[in-house]
Amino acid sequence: MNLKKNAGYVLPALGAVVLLLLGWALLKSSSGYPDYILPGPGTVWSAFVDHRMEILRSTWITFLSASGGLSLSVLFGGLTAIVFSQAKWIRRGLYPLAIFLQTVPIVAVAPIIVLWLEEGIVATMFISFIVSLFPIITNTTAGLLNVDNGRYELFRLYRASRFQRLYRLQIPGAMPQFVTGVKIASGMSVLGAVVGEFFCATLQNKGLGRQIFELKDYNVPWMYACILIATFLGVLTFSIVSLIGDRVLLYWDEKKISNI
C-alpha cells in the first residue's frame, strides 16, 4: 500500500523529468547550437562528473548560506508576525516596509549589501534572509489573525489575557499557515543565496552562484551542471522543510495540512 502510494508520487515526477531530458536532447540535436550556447544533457552530465568535487563544495557553501538565511527568516519573520498581529496600527505602519522587502530588486541591492557586510557568507546569508522573509511574515500574520470565532469566545469567557490568547490559541492556530510560509520561503532562500554569491568575487570558497557567474565565460556545460544542482538544492531544501512541517502538523486538523 505504502509502496504503491509512494510510486504514485514519484512516477509522474520521474516521467516529467525523462520527457524534459528527451526534449532537451532533441532540441540540441535538431538546432545544432554549439556547446557554449546549449550543451546537450550528456555533455552536462560529464561536466558534472569531471567537476563533482568543486560542485559539491559549492553546493555545501550555498546550502549553508540558504539555510542560515532561512533560519533567520523563520526566527525574525515569526517574531515580526507576532508583533504585527497585536494591533492594526502596527500593521498599517510596518506592512509597507515588509512589502518593500518583497518588491526591492534584489539584484540591484545585493552589491550594496555585499559592500556593507563585506564579501562572505554573512552577506549571502543576509541576502537570502531578505528574499525569504516576506512569505513567512504574511502567512504567519494571516494565521495569527485568522482565529476561529467560537474558540476566541471560549477564551473571552474565561477572561484570558492577551498573552494567554496569543500563546494558547493564536500561535498554535497559526502553525499550518506558518509552515506554508516557511515552505515558500525555503525555495526563495536558495535563490537569495545564489544571487548574493554573484557579487562575492574574492571568496576562496565559491558558492554555486559565483561558479555560475564565472563559468559562463569559459565552461558552459559545467555552468549548466551548477544551475541544475542549484535548482536541485532548492527542491531539496523545500522537501526537508515540507517533511518537518508536515510532521509538526500531524497534530493539527488533517484538512489543514497543505497539499503543495
Binding site: 476561529d148 467560537g150 474558540r151 469566545e153 471560549l154 469567557l157 494558547r168 490559541l169 498554535p172 492556530g173 502553525m175 497534530y251 493539527w252 486538523d253 489543514k256
Partner: peptide, 13 residues
C-alpha cells in the same frame, strides 16, 4: 458560569 457552544470548539492540537 460556563457556556457550551453549538460547535464543540475544541482546540485541534
Amino acid at each position: 458560569t460556563a457556556f457550551v457552544f453549538q460547535e464543540s470548539n475544541l482546540l485541534p492540537w
